[in-house]
C-alpha cells in the first residue's frame, strides 16, 4: 500500500516547484491558467520526445497527477493510436486516452458547482 510514496512525493514536489518558479520569476500576467496550459503542452512535448516516460517510471503518481502527466497521456495516446489506425489516430488517440479524466472533470465539476455556494 505504501509503495512508491517517497518517489511520488519527490517527483511531484519537484514538478510543482517548476510551476512556482514560473509564476514568481515571470511577469505578473503569467496566471495559474498560463501555468496549467504550459504544463499540459510541456508534458505532451516531453512525452513525444520520450523524456516523460522515465519520470512516470520513477515517480508514479508524482508524474501522473501533475497536469504535465495529463499532457503526457494525450501525446502517448495519439502516438499509440497512429500505430494502430494511421493518420486518424492522431485525432482520436489523445482524447481517447484521457477520456476518463476529461469526463470526470466535467461531471464532478458540474456536480460541485450546482451543489455548493461560493463563500467569497
Amino acid at each position: 500500500m505504501f509503495d512508491m510514496i517517497i518517489p511520488a512525493f519527490l517527483v511531484g514536489g519537484t514538478i510543482c516547484v517548476i510551476g512556482q518558479l514560473l509564476m514568481d520569476l515571470t511577469k505578473p500576467s503569467f496566471t495559474p491558467a498560463h501555468v496549467l496550459v504550459s504544463f499540459v503542452s510541456g508534458g505532451a512535448i516531453l512525452g513525444a520526445l520520450g523524456l516523460y516516460e522515465p519520470l512516470m517510471k520513477i515517480g508514479g503518481a508524482g508524474a501522473s497527477i501533475p497536469l504535465s502527466g495529463f499532457g503526457y497521456s494525450l501525446a502517448k495516446g495519439a502516438m499509440e493510436a497512429v500505430e494502430k489506425r494511421g493518420i486518424m489516430g492522431a485525432f482520436s488517440g489523445g482524447v481517447e486516452a484521457t477520456a476518463v479524466g476529461i469526463a470526470a472533470a466535467v461531471f464532478f465539476g458540474y456536480l460541485m458547482s450546482v451543489t455548493f455556494k461560493p463563500k467569497g
Binding site: A33, L36, L74, M79, A90, F91, G94
Partner: peptide, 24 residues
C-alpha cells in the same frame, strides 16, 4: 466551467494532434 479548462483542453488536445501527425 471552461474558463480555465477550455484553454487547457485546447492546447493539450492540439499539441497531442501535432505530436500524432509528427509521429505518423
Amino acid at each position: 466551467l471552461f474558463t480555465v479548462a477550455g484553454p487547457v483542453l485546447v492546447y493539450g488536445i492540439a499539441t497531442s494532434i501535432v505530436v500524432g501527425f509528427a509521429y505518423y
